[in-house]
Design a protein around this nucleic acid. Structure first.
Lengths: 153, 153
DNA sequence: GAAAATATTTTGGATACCCTAAAAGGTTGA
DNA sequence: TCAACCTTTTAGGGTATCCAAAATATTTTC
């Protein structure tokens, strides 16, 4: 099992590599906000454990094992972020929270959240209940769904 | 800023103390699943930093500083757990996930989630859209809200 | 092609956790 | 009251992460 921090590094590597083909110490250092020695140290460990192709003083790439973790993590990240955006959380915070929650959330919860995001985005424009939630969020006023006893299939 | 683990310990202490008036090393050890030496070590630190009243070999209580953190954390926990239950996550997982997410979530996100839980629980029984979500979760079939262009305020 | 600039690595340390084994303190019941 | 039993603490270690300073490698620039 990769640690949380391992997932963070792999995810960052995937982002960087998808943009420039390989990643350097300084890229990861900047993206994760840690010093170069920490990155080198992690590169060494990730190299030994087969998550990345690492050779001293040269750019790294992900192995398929590393790519798998990175993609799984990015997918969780995206779902969480979309979920938070639906709730109305601002972009920056949605991103930061997604980054932290992605490491600790159970697969079953992810499954529910994924479906929830699908559900909220299923129709082209915002579903009525979501409008009602936003109205409620802003005013505290609840708009009752006008249908109550019919339509239950 | 208390660390995540500090929050965990304070929350556990609050739970135990609200039941028996004070907490012993063994109680926390059992509740958090860590060995007694780890608990003693943390008690010492929490004592020094003013979160608990600690004296060797005797039960501890929370200071008001500690109680404040504990309550804040428990409140977040509850909201997260309720939110996950609304989504249909099972009780055990909802609890575990709440326990981990509570430490990493931004106040703005908590605010949105709190309102969302209120919104979903506002009417006595499950709102229609939530039924629709559950139906969608189980079957992949989307039930359109039958009202579309009317009732916009 | 060597000096300057930049990037990476190594070294040596720090912190926050965790643990096992052993010692010490506290409690209790015959 | 004291031996046996719990409970807590101490001692000594371990891991994962971080850092600053110094050493080394690579790249750029003149």
């Amino acid at each position: 099992m990769p640690t949380e921090r391992t997932e963070d590094y792999l995810e960052a590597l995937d982002v960087i590599i998808s943009e420039k083909g390989y990643a350097q110490v300084k890229d990861v250092s900047k993206l994760l906000g840690v010093g170069p020695p920490s990155v080198t140290e992690m590169f060494q460990k990730l190299g030994e454990t087969g998550y990345i192709n690492y050779e001293k003083y040269s750019g790294v790439t992900l192995t398929s094992k590393g790519k798998k973790i990175a993609e799984k993590t990015r997918k969780k990240h995206d779902t969480l972020k979309n979920f938070l955006l639906i709730l109305g959380v601002n972009k920056k915070i949605a991103n930061e929270d997604a980054c932290r929650i992605e490491h600790v959330v159970n697969p079953e919860t992810m499954d529910r959240l994924t479906k929830f995001v699908d559900f909220a985005q299923h129709v082209g424009d915002e579903p009525r209940w979501l409008d009602h939630f936003k109205h409620f969020y802003e005013t505290g006023e609840y708009r009752e769904c006008p249908l109550k006893e019919q339509d239950d299939q």
